Computed example of a mutant assay.
Amino acid sequence: MKVLVIGANGQVGRRVVQELAASQHEAVAMVRKEEQVNHLKELGAENVVLGDLEKDFSEAFEGIDAVIFAAGSGGSTGADKTLTIDLWGSVKAMRYAEEKGVKRFVQLSSVGTPDPDQGGEKMKPYLVAKRVADDMLKTTDLDYTIVRPGALSNDGKSGKIEVSAEGFASLKDRSIPRADVAALLVKVLDQPNTYHKTFEVLQGQASFDDGLASL
């Protein structure tokens, strides 16, 4: 599949591009700045397109078979950017996908989204944006998968996960490497049992195949 990676220059997005390059799929990286193009090509993107989530980026969907939405406004921005990028950017991506006939849509979300009120004041705008974006995705006709990782680390890829469709009882002292999250986002692309599913994921003891088989 030709896969559009939205948020390709982010910490997870760059790893997604690398994972796609090592798979049978093709990565089409969407970035906001011209100076980011060559780096994404070096990471393995077959093509790089320019697109701004705060504007019309529908042209990026031409010829695309699937979407991985891994964009985020980042911790240094305010609630305004969280709304326009994490929420509205996601909603626009869903609409463009529907308009262009792109059925497969994988969305990177977060644990804590089921009840943003429990996330603390600093995290609340982010969790609300992700929760509403997830809820909007569920109303579409897209073959979606929503992946909600716990705290992210920069540890190397472990290849071992724990998956929960109901949500983890405790997240204390637990995390998951960004490398594992990126690999999982690519893994679910052609896993029909993950269609129309939402699940949380942490580093664990199960292989990707075994963890996903539990859904």
Rank of each mutant, 00 (worst) to 15 (best):
Q24C: 15
G211K: 13
S110L: 10
D80F: 14
L184M: 04
M30A: 09
I64Y: 04
N193M: 12
E26G: 05
V12E: 04
L212D: 00
V49F: 08
D117V: 12
T194A: 05
A27D: 03
D65C: 07
G150A: 10
S58C: 14
E98G: 07
D209T: 14
K81S: 05
N9F: 15
N154V: 13
L4F: 02
L137S: 03
L152F: 09
S170N: 10
A206W: 10
I64T: 03
E200M: 13
I85Y: 00
L53T: 01
Q191F: 14
G10Y: 11
S109G: 12
F57Q: 00
V201A: 03
V28Y: 04
Q11E: 11
M30L: 12
K172W: 12
S175P: 01
P116E: 11
R131V: 04
L185P: 00
I6A: 07
S175H: 07
N9P: 00
A71D: 06
L202H: 03
K138M: 09
A179I: 13
S175E: 07
S23L: 12
G150M: 11
I64A: 01
L4S: 01
K122T: 14
S110T: 09
E99T: 11
E99W: 07
D141K: 11
R178H: 04
S207F: 06
T84Q: 10
K160H: 05
K160C: 04
D86E: 08
V201P: 00
D135L: 13
R32F: 04
S109N: 09
G78Q: 14
L185S: 07
V3K: 02
P125V: 05
S76N: 11
R32P: 00
R131L: 08
V5Y: 03
K81L: 08
V147H: 01
D155Q: 15
G156M: 13
A97H: 05
G150F: 10
K197Q: 05
T77M: 09
V132G: 03
L4R: 02
D141N: 12
L40G: 00
K103D: 08
D134A: 11
A165N: 06
K122F: 15
K122S: 08
E62K: 14
M30N: 04
G10D: 05
P149M: 13
K130E: 02
Q11L: 14
Q18I: 15
I6N: 01
V132L: 11
A169M: 07
P192S: 06
L142G: 00
L43E: 01
L171N: 07
G72Q: 09
K160M: 09
T113N: 02
L137D: 00
N154S: 12
G7V: 08
K157S: 04
H25D: 07
T82K: 09
A79L: 14
H196G: 06
S207A: 08
E26T: 08
T194K: 02
